[in-house]
């Protein structure tokens, strides 16, 4: 049987983890409990953080959004976060069903670190800084340094993921995801794209098409040169298509039971093309 500590403050959570560095952190339980119920994991020590108020908060500043790791997908969709980080809300909407979105958290998505984690491409595209705390004090890192492999993070024993700090660029944000049905799916391919009109950059990151969450740096740089930043003209089909191909080149998908590498690479190109056109379409965003 497991022993479970239910932390009621960040200090309590930190203390419990420092005292028991191999403990498993339980937030919404939408990943962990599935694994436990399937007999895949049998944690001896559990620290529950769902009742840690510091993790449940978010803060929106002019150019930065700080999201506590206890924030649920539903909160990402339905609160002021949805305006401050639209792609995060769009990604959250694609996670599971309403009960799952009520329970699941940003921290869980980060901790599980699946390539199919739906918020992760958004975090990558928003230049997220992941804040962790633990025996070595506070550490901050980009998503690249946090997710280091399939379901592998650079978290050290006893560390807790506290928050993600996101850019708040001036420009549209898009998250698109493909699954085998129209809702409640594990991603076959996902893509986040944000336009930053101040920095005159486009940032694009991919889900479920590589071991990690790749940014399409080459495509980003290429397309930034071809955007009409001053006048806001729509991107041409040729630019959007070429961008799609360049983004697809950043993917390294595999064949598995969910899809094929060939389809995923193709799909990423289509998603990138569409996301770019939406982000730089004149007029409304067509959000749904």
């Amino acid at each position: 049987m497991s022993d479970v500590v239910v932390a009621r403050s960040l200090d309590e959570a930190r203390e419990a983890l420092i005292g028991q560095p191999d403990a498993t952190v339980l937030a919404g339980g939408t990943d962990l409990m599935v694994e436990i119920n399937r007999g895949l994991r049998r944690p001896r020590h559990v620290v529950g953080v769902a009742q840690v108020p510091e993790l449940r908060r978010w803060h929106i500043a002019d150019n930065r959004v700080v999201v506590g790791t206890g924030v649920t997908y539903t909160e990402m969709m339905t609160t002021s976060l949805a305006d401050a980080a639209p792609a995060l809300a769009q990604a959250a909407r694609t996670v599971g069903s309403p009960p799952i979105r009520n329970a699941g958290t940003l921290g869980g998505n980060l901790g599980t670190a699946s390539p199919a984690g739906d918020t992760l491409p958004v975090l990558a595209a928003l230049n997220a800084e992941i804040v962790v705390t633990g025996p070595d004090g506070e550490r901050r890192m980009g998503l690249d340094d946090f997710v280091v492999g399939v379901k592998q993070t650079s978290l050290r024993p006893g560390e807790l993921i506290v928050a993600a700090e996101l850019d708040r660029p001036t420009g549209r944000q898009e998250f698109l995801k493909i699954g085998p049905r129209n809702a409640m799916v594990i991603s076959m391919a996902g893509l986040a794209l944000v336009a930053d009109h101040d920095a005159r950059t486009v940032r694009c990151a991919l889900g479920a098409v590589a071991a990690g969450i790749p940014r399409a740096h080459d495509a980003e740089a290429w397309v930034a040169e071809r955007i009409d930043w001053d006048n806001g003209a729509a991107v041409t089909d040729a630019v959007a298509d070429e961008f799609g191909q360049r983004v697809a080149a950043a993917s390294s998908p595999i064949d598995d039971h969910r899809s094929t590498a060939a389809y995923r690479r193709h799909a990423v190109a289509v998603l990138a093309t569409r996301a770019l056109k939406r982000a730089f379409a004149p007029g409304g965003n067509g959000d749904a």
């Binding site: 769009q90 694609t94 898009e174 995801k177 493909i178 699954g179 129209n182 799916v185 996902g190 569409r274």
Partner: peptide
């Protein structure tokens, strides 16, 4: 529909009516 949930891809926001 203009609501992407009524279009192919549903909540994944992949598809516009023109697609």
């Amino acid at each position: 529909s203009d609501d992407r949930r009524d279009l192919p891809g549903g909540s994944g926001r992949t598809t516009d009516a023109a697609d």
